[in-house]
């Protein structure tokens, strides 16, 4: 479904991604692991056309993503849930969610999805007319996820959804991501929290200083000594 081939990405003169190749098949939940600055976010930025790549190719269901303007991504069925939540703080919760469905024309369906999001995240209902900036970190993350789902994506990109959240909330967030996968959506999950990500992933890649170091099923990676030492604290 999603195919990255030898992607090279630069910030100025600094190379952030070196020959990154990875693939996500339909219905899969793939985790992309790595330390800070390993190039995880850069990979997502490359996929969602937020930063041009220098070499390589990125295809989504046969479409060349490097030729697509960032705002057409949702039309293709890709939703990006960005790092650090990045909800629109001065807009209300409802407005944030509605913006997630910005390009959808099926008003009735949008309404139904909105209700569904509210039922998934009951916390958001009571705060629907509050400005998003006043929510707690966990609530903002739920809002960001909800906002991403409002576009009815086929593929959801999550960028460190657990970042800076309390363990209990992280638990909830990962449950939600698992549910999203169970609904038949494809997920690419970028995480530093390798242990928990591997708990729900079908497959995983390990990024290190801009290159893919390892690839495998969670079982394979969990038994890998190197991974254990570097990412799982054992």
């Amino acid at each position: 479904m999603l195919e990255l081939n030898n992607v090279n990405l630069y910030y100025g003169r600094i190379q952030a991604l070196k020959n990154v190749s990875l693939s996500v098949r339909e219905g899969e939940l793939v985790a992309l692991l790595g330390a800070n600055g390993a190039g995880k976010t850069s990979t997502l930025r490359a996929i969602s056309c937020m930063h041009p790549i220098k070499e390589g190719s990125i295809h989504f269901s046969g479409t060349d993503l490097t030729k697509v303007p960032a705002h057409r991504l949702v039309d293709l069925g890709i939703a990006h849930c960005p790092e650090g939540r990045q909800v629109f703080g001065r807009l209300s919760v409802k407005e944030n969610l509605e913006l997630g469905a910005f390009r959808r024309k099926d008003k009735e369906e949008v309404k139904r999805d909105l209700e569904w999001i509210y039922s998934t995240f009951p916390r958001l209902v009571e705060r629907r007319s509050q400005s998003a900036g006043t929510l707690s970190g966990g609530e903002q993350q739920m809002l960001a996820i909800g906002r991403a789902l409002m576009s009815r994506p086929k593929l959801v990109l999550f960028d460190e959804p657990s970042l800076g959240l309390a363990p209990l909330i992280v638990e909830q967030i990962f449950d939600v991501i698992k549910k999203i996968k169970e609904q038949g959506r494809t997920v690419l999950l970028v995480e530093q929290n390798a242990f928990q990500a591997l708990g729900i992933a079908d497959r995983a890649y390990v990024l290190e200083t801009g290159t893919i170091k390892l690839e495998g099923t969670p079982e394979q990676l969990l038994s890998n000594e190197e991974v254990k030492r570097a990412y799982l604290g054992g």
């Binding site: 949702v74 990045q86 703080g89 807009l91 509605e98 576009s151």
Partner: peptide, 24 residues
């Protein structure tokens, strides 16, 4: 209005606004 909301979104975070499918 829908465009007005999009405008406010852009003024807050233009990058994420694009991810929502807003044509900057």
């Amino acid at each position: 209005t829908r465009l007005g909301t999009a405008m406010r979104a852009c003024s807050e975070n233009i990058g994420v606004a694009r991810l929502m499918g807003i044509d900057i």
